[in-house]
């Protein structure tokens, strides 16, 4: 009787202890192996060691515990558990290391970005300045140069239809340059003066010369130049630049002149 109980008890015990020990043993061995190789990797990575030393240490401690337990019977669950913890610590350490490398890199890139932004701003400023200089040269090339009246630019008769005040399309480029120049030099103002030749009625000539000057002023205003910056005058046949005896001379006399102020807005006095 007692022998039978004893046998039963030992059978039960054996069953309990072995259980499904075969497959459990295998999975805990695999977990241990995975934890070991992960720990090996983080321990040899100096970036990880520098940025997450505590997690690396804990990964090592958990691994050591799993290792120790693996030599005991019936502790496969515990081995798996500590192997799992060790693996997690290694993974956390690795993530934290990537994070800290990313942060260092981001700080450097942010400096790069600021430097580039500054360079771009300077370059844009420079290009505005260059554009302005270029335009000024263009405008200067269209003017007769510095006279006692300041800078004077002449729009010739060819830019108008004969006897009419309308500007021809061919005047557009010159006028656009003028507008850009005035936009880039906001303190400069202009006086637009119309002139005619001496043929025909004197009063009619005065009216036409004034109308042509006004046309140019209107176009400038349409393109965004403030009216306050523009004066308009008609001079008729006064102040010829050539003799009125020849057709060529008369054509030269039919003109619109644009007188620029200096950079501070000081305009020479009107004729």
């Amino acid at each position: 009787m007692s022998a039978r109980v004893q046998m039963l008890a030992s059978a039960l015990l054996a069953l309990l202890l072995s259980g499904c020990a075969g497959s459990q043993q295998q999975s805990s061995n695999e977990a241990l192996e995975a934890a070991r190789s992960s720990f090996q990797a983080v321990r040899e990575n100096s970036d990880v060691l520098r940025s997450a030393p505590k997690d690396v240490i804990r990964a090592g401690e958990s691994l050591a515990r799993a290792d120790r337990l693996s030599s005991y019977w019936g502790s496969t669950d515990d081995v798996s558990h500590y192997a799992y913890l060790s693996l997690r610590y290694s993974e956390i350490a690795e993530q934290n290391s990537v994070l800290s490398l990313n942060q260092d890199r981001a700080a450097k890139l942010e400096l790069d970005r600021q430097r580039l932004q500054l360079a771009l701003r300077e370059a844009k400023l420079l290009s505005v300045q260059e554009q302005s200089n270029w335009l000024e040269e263009q405008i200067l090339s269209l003017t007769a140069g510095e006279t006692e009246r300041g800078l004077v630019m002449t729009l010739g008769d060819v830019l108008f239809d004969a006897g009419q005040a309308e500007l021809k399309a061919s005047a557009n480029r010159t006028v656009l340059k003028l507008v850009q120049f005035l936009q880039l030099n906001p303190r400069r103002v202009v006086r637009i003066e119309g002139y005619s030749d001496s043929r025909g009625d004197k009063l009619e000539n005065l009216k036409l010369s004034r109308a042509r000057a006004q046309t140019v002023a209107d176009v400038l205003v349409d393109l965004g130049v403030d009216t306050a910056r523009i004066e308009v005058q008609g001079h008729g046949e006064s102040f010829p630049v050539a003799e009125n005896a020849s057709a060529r001379g008369r054509a030269q006399n039919r003109r619109v002149e644009i007188v620029f102020s200096d950079e501070l807005g000081r305009l020479s006095s009107a004729r």
């Binding site: 997690r88 993974e91 990537v98 994070l99 990313n102 981001a106 890139l109």
Partner: peptide, 28 residues
């Protein structure tokens, strides 16, 4: 509970790392 704690910490680290990666991409 021990496993849950480390799972959660790893989740946190992954999210933070992903965010820093996104930030790097945006900067680039």
């Amino acid at each position: 509970a021990e496993q849950a704690e480390l799972d959660a910490r790893l989740a946190e680290a992954r999210v933070l790392t992903q965010k820093s990666q996104d930030q790097l991409d945006e900067l680039n």
